[in-house]
Amino acid sequence: MADKLHVSLVTPEKELFSGDVDQVIAPGTEGEFGVLVNHAPFMTTLAEGAVVILDGDKRRVFNVRGGFADVNASGMTILAEHAEEYVETVH
């Protein structure tokens, strides 16, 4: 899958999400950032906030606290100390 970004969101308890998606938006300590496929190698610590995973018209939101993100050629890895899926209410 060359045109998709492989992302995995892991906490010490379990792997919360793993799959190929279009885009991930994550809260870095120095500002929110979006990652698309073929992003340059990048690493940052994470602030408290929401990680949004976008795939087609699907959208999943995870609240994370503490951790860091690592983006390299093989994909994106988010290591969060605490994370849980945020279930959005229908507007």
Partner: peptide, 26 residues
């Protein structure tokens, strides 16, 4: 890690040392 392209220049936010500084105790 296989095929990460270890030659690739990593971009760090904040700096490499600072990340390592917080990462190691964790």
């Amino acid at each position: 890690e296989p095929s990460t392209g270890s030659d690739a220049v990593y971009q760090y936010e904040p700096s490499e040392e600072e990340i390592l500084e917080t990462l190691l105790p964790r």
